[in-house]
Amino acid sequence: MARQVVPARETRRIDRLLWMLRLTRTRGAAQDLVCEGHVRVNGRRVLRCSQAIAIGDIVTLPLGEMVRIIEILDLPSRRGPPVEASAQFRDHTPGVNASVSQEGEAS
């Protein structure tokens, strides 16, 4: 009998992912957020910068005066321009999407 090989899920380190998605200015700032216990993945607090993040994970983190809730849609291979970065996650933060859709309706 042949064994079935289960493909491994592709993942990224959380500190690197936050930096690549342009949610933090530097990777060091992302590491500080994680190590201080401010970031949650799928509702669980993350304390290691090496925590693996995969497509479909929900990440909650404080940015500025608000708490952002994002769903990972794709894992970036590089830190690209802001438009490319924002296409790789969906923002579930209350009030953020409502203001964007209202602007679109006003046009």
Rank of each mutant, 00 (worst) to 15 (best):
M1T: 06
M1Y: 06
R3F: 11
Q4R: 14
V5R: 00
V5H: 10
P7R: 05
A8L: 05
R9L: 01
E10G: 05
E10M: 00
R13M: 00
R13S: 01
R13N: 05
I14V: 09
I14A: 00
R16F: 03
L17E: 04
L18V: 08
L18I: 00
L18M: 08
W19Y: 04
W19T: 00
M20L: 07
L21C: 07
L21W: 01
L21T: 10
R22Q: 07
L23Q: 01
L23E: 06
R25E: 01
R25Y: 04
R25S: 12
R27T: 05
G28K: 03
A29N: 05
A30N: 08
Q31D: 08
C35S: 15
C35W: 04
C35N: 15
C35H: 15
G37R: 13
H38G: 07
H38Q: 07
H38L: 07
H38D: 03
V41L: 02
N42G: 09
G43S: 00
G43W: 13
R45N: 12
V46T: 13
V46K: 12
L47Y: 13
L47M: 11
Q51F: 08
Q51R: 09
Q51M: 04
Q51S: 09
I53W: 03
A54T: 02
I55V: 15
V59T: 06
V59L: 12
L61H: 10
G64I: 05
E65K: 08
E65Q: 06
E65R: 08
M66I: 08
V67Q: 10
R68P: 01
R68L: 09
I69F: 02
I69Y: 10
I70F: 04
E71P: 08
I72A: 10
L73R: 15
L73H: 13
L73S: 15
D74S: 13
D74F: 10
L75P: 01
S77F: 15
S77Y: 13
R79H: 13
G80H: 14
P81R: 07
P82W: 02
V83E: 13
V83F: 12
E84L: 15
S86N: 05
Q88M: 14
F89K: 10
F89E: 12
F89D: 12
R90I: 12
R90E: 14
D91Y: 12
H92T: 06
H92W: 10
H92N: 07
T93N: 10
P94L: 01
G95A: 05
V96P: 11
N97C: 12
N97V: 12
S99N: 01
V100S: 11
V100C: 10
S101W: 11
S101C: 07
E105Q: 13
A106D: 11
A106W: 14
A106K: 14
S107H: 13
S107R: 14
